Computed example of a mutant assay.
Amino acid sequence: MARRDLTGAVDFAFLESFAAGDQGVVDEVLALFREQARMWSMMLDPASEGWRDAVHTLKGTARGIGAHALGDVCQAAEAEGAQGLDAVRDALDAALADIAAYAHERALQSLKTPR
């Protein structure tokens, strides 16, 4: 996957700016987000007592990395209730796919020899 595979689910320019261009910080933040997303995704079930907490936490973290659409659907789910969880899961999947594509592109760039 390369930059052409990014859907726009995450505004990486926002995150890079927030990290003052420090790519190490960007990489660390995205790794933490992916790790936490595994935990949150298990809680995005209406039968889980913690789904509201997961959605609220995910909303703030998503907005912090530039996943604005994910933050918006989390906010809607907080207001609408459990029926909004499908949209949250879909938006989380889209954000994670963009993060994977971004990380893959960065890995490919690191392999290129300087000219």
Rank of each mutant, 00 (worst) to 15 (best):
D22A: 04
L58W: 09
A9K: 08
L85F: 02
M42W: 11
A107E: 14
L70V: 10
A103E: 14
S110V: 01
E105M: 08
A47H: 08
Y102H: 14
R106N: 06
E80H: 08
H104P: 00
V73R: 01
A95G: 08
E35H: 12
V10E: 07
D86M: 07
W40I: 02
D27M: 06
A95K: 14
L44R: 11
H104Q: 12
D93Q: 15
M1Q: 11
S110P: 00
E49P: 02
G64S: 07
S41L: 07
A62Q: 07
E105R: 11
H104C: 07
L6N: 05
R3F: 03
S17D: 05
V25M: 13
E28H: 14
I65N: 06
G8T: 04
P114N: 06
K59R: 15
A87I: 04
C74V: 01
A31G: 06
E28L: 14
R34K: 14
R34E: 15
L30C: 04
L70F: 12
R63E: 11
Y102W: 13
A13Y: 00
A95T: 11
T7Y: 08
F14D: 13
M1C: 06
A91G: 10
K59L: 07
G71N: 03
S17I: 00
Q75V: 01
R106A: 11
D45N: 15
L85A: 10
P114I: 04
L70W: 15
L6F: 02
S110L: 09
